[in-house]
Amino acid sequence: MVLLIYADNAATTKLDSDAFEAMKPFLFESYGNVSQPYSFARTAKKALKEARENIAKCIGASPDEIFFTSGGTESDNWAIKGLLKCGDNRLILTSNIEHHAILNACAAVERMNYPVKYLPVDKFGILQPNTLANSINSNVKLVTVMLVNNELGTIEPIKELAKIAHENGSYFHTDAVQALGHIEIDVNDLGVDMLSASAHKFNGPKGVGFLYVRRGIDIQPFMDGGTQEFGVRAGTENIASIVAMAKALQKNCNQIKDTKKRLFEMERRFFEILDKTEIDYIRNGSPNHAPGIINISIKNTSGEMILHRLDLKGIYISTGSACDSTNIKVSHVIKAISVPMDYANGTIRISLGKDNRETDVQEIADALIDILKNN
Rank of each mutant, 00 (worst) to 15 (best):
N9W: 00
A10K: 03
T12W: 03
T13K: 11
K14C: 00
S17R: 11
A22P: 08
P25E: 08
L27A: 06
E29C: 00
G32E: 05
N33C: 13
V34T: 11
P37D: 11
A41C: 08
T43A: 14
A47T: 07
R52W: 07
E53F: 07
C58L: 10
S62R: 14
I66T: 08
F68A: 14
S70K: 14
D76T: 10
N77L: 03
C86H: 04
C86N: 09
N89Q: 12
I97R: 04
I102D: 06
C106P: 09
E110A: 14
N113K: 14
Y114I: 03
K117T: 09
V121Q: 03
K123S: 15
L127E: 05
P129C: 06
A133V: 02
S135E: 09
S135W: 05
I136Q: 02
N139M: 07
K141W: 03
V143H: 01
V148P: 10
L152G: 08
N168R: 09
G169M: 01
H173V: 12
H173W: 02
D175I: 03
G181H: 05
G181P: 10
D186P: 10
N188M: 02
G191S: 08
V192Q: 02
L195A: 11
H200I: 13
F202G: 07
N203P: 07
G204F: 00
Y212T: 05
Y212W: 04
P221W: 01
D224C: 06
D224F: 10
G225L: 09
G226M: 05
Q228N: 14
R233F: 07
A240Y: 04
A240D: 15
S241M: 09
A246M: 08
K247N: 03
N252A: 13
K257L: 13
K261R: 13
F264V: 09
E267A: 06
K276W: 01
T277S: 13
Y281P: 07
N284F: 00
G285P: 01
S286N: 15
N288E: 13
A290K: 10
I293G: 09
N295V: 00
S297C: 06
G303E: 12
L310R: 02
I317D: 07
S321E: 15
S321V: 15
D324W: 01
T326M: 07
K329Y: 12
K329V: 11
V330H: 04
H332I: 05
V333I: 15
I334N: 07
A336E: 08
M341K: 15
Y343R: 07
Y343S: 08
A344Y: 06
A344D: 04
N345S: 14
R349A: 00
E363A: 13
I364S: 04
A365R: 00
D370M: 06
